[in-house]
Amino acid sequence: MEKHMAVCPYCGSGCKLNILVQDGIVVGTEPLQGITNEGELCLKGLSGYDFLNDTKILTPRVYHPQLRPVKGAPFERVTWDNALNFVAEKLLAVKEKFGPDAIMLTGSSRGAGNEANLVMQRFARACIGTNNIDNCART
């Protein structure tokens, strides 16, 4: 069984834990002696791991880029190139027509991590040219 160190993805307590993996399946977590949790985990840290196995209990994971070629059309799976070029083209068109402040972006306060937020706010500011970047700190 493999053990991989992580920080719990749920509340802001910052609990250190190991993710236990067997044959590519997450089979559990175990608490570590982190600074805030000192070897304890609550029910979410202890049993909130198996969404990683794509259980589809509530809703499925998304594994491939998909888009609606025109507004309101059904989703189609596309390649990454198609998806990113589509987004780039649309965002540039909005920026051209309405200015950079017509584009809103968010960071993510959840599992994405700090580095993804750093890149996102740089993208908003340096590439789009707007400060319309925010995160879900209010809800």
């Binding site: 920080v7 719990c8 802001g12 306060s109 599992g111 991590g113 706010q121 879900c136």
Partner: peptide, 12 residues
């Protein structure tokens, strides 16, 4: 949320 302090620190 687990990284709400972090994403604010990161300028999001």
């Amino acid at each position: 949320q687990n990284n709400v302090q972090g994403s604010c620190d990161m300028g999001a």
